[in-house]
């Protein structure tokens, strides 16, 4: 019997199967991140081979018989995330990458295809403590990246060449059959020999991705009320309702310096992000902030 214990923030899952292809599939998508988050729920998922396919059970309850092992693995993965999100229903979900640099936490907020993953991947290979590329959960002024492997598009391998050098297996992945030609590769930072640790805490700097241009990346200070508008446009409300949503976003913005980031080339993007964080460090040092 093959077994894994998987933490997704507040949930811990025990997954077991007698079907090696199912576990191989899950091992290809589960995040290895160490997570500084209290576990409040535990679930058990089992996949057993039987006549006609793979029987999936969740906490002892039948979830169906799936013929294809990859599809059985995909069902288990989907349930892991649904259950994990269910345990975090009280948090506001923000479309953002999350990272730390010299002890300061920052978010890069933007819609899908705004360039979050490409920028976060570049920052990762530059030595930033990148914790997530896509989804951040916010509650009571604290933010935590949702533990999901980074969704690297094949195009990113060309934009961040060091990624391909560190993980040549990514470049060898099969071509996409997606209509837009993008192949999504599930990158775990451990595949690059990097540690992946997810923490939870207040945010020092917020970057709002605001389009792209051919010039060097530019960061402009953004008023707090405009940041609230920008972050709300890229987030989903918690189960507590819209008042709690506004409260969460305001608490996130209140403690942070805000910038609108217009992405140009990635070299200037990385240095611009670093400069903004250095400015924040300096401000906090001058004001005696922690």
């Amino acid at each position: 019997m093959l077994e894994r214990w998987i933490q997704l923030l507040a949930c811990e899952f025990h997954v077991s199967t007698d079907a090696e292809p199912v576990m191989r599939w899950l091992d290809g998508v589960r995040p290895s991140a160490l997570q500084d988050y209290s576990i409040s729920r535990r679930h058990r998922l089992e996949v057993r081979r039987e006549a006609g396919g793979h029987r999936v059970r969740e906490d002892g309850e039948d979830r169906g018989l799936i013929a294809d092992p990859d599809e059985a693995g995909a069902l288990v993965e989907r349930r892991l995330h649904e259950l994990a999100f269910g345990a975090l229903a009280g948090c506001t979900k923000v479309h953002a990458g999350c990272a730390t640099w010299r002890g300061r936490r920052f978010l890069v907020v933007g819609h899908g295809r705004a360039g979050k993953t490409t920028l976060m991947t570049r920052l990762l290979v530059d030595g930033f403590g990148v914790e997530g590329d896509e989804m951040v959960l916010v509650s009571d002024g604290r933010a935590v990246a949702y533990p999901r492997r980074f969704g690297i598009r094949r195009r990113t391998l060309g934009l961040v060449p060091r990624l391909g050098a560190l993980a040549p297996h990514l470049a060898g992945a099969p071509d996409s059959d997606e209509p837009d030609g993008y192949q999504i590769l599930a990158l775990d930072p451990s595949q690059l020999g990097l540690s992946w640790r997810i923490g939870c805490g207040p945010v020092d700097v917020l970057f709002l991705l605001d389009g792209r241009h051919a010039s060097p990346t530019r960061a402009l200070g953004c008023p707090a009320h405009a940041m609230v508008q920008g972050v709300m446009a890229q987030s989903n409300p918690p189960s507590g309702g819209r008042a709690a949503w506004v409260r969460d976003v305001c608490s996130l913005v209140r403690g942070a310096a805000g910038y609108r980031l217009t992405l140009g080339d990635l070299d200037s993007a990385a240095s611009t992000v670093r400069q903004c964080l250095e400015a924040r460090l300096q401000t906090k040092d001058e004001t005696g902030g922690s």
Partner: peptide, 9 residues
């Protein structure tokens, strides 16, 4: 009422 650095939401 939610306070920000430059105003209120």
């Amino acid at each position: 009422v939610n306070q920000l650095a430059d105003g209120y939401v």
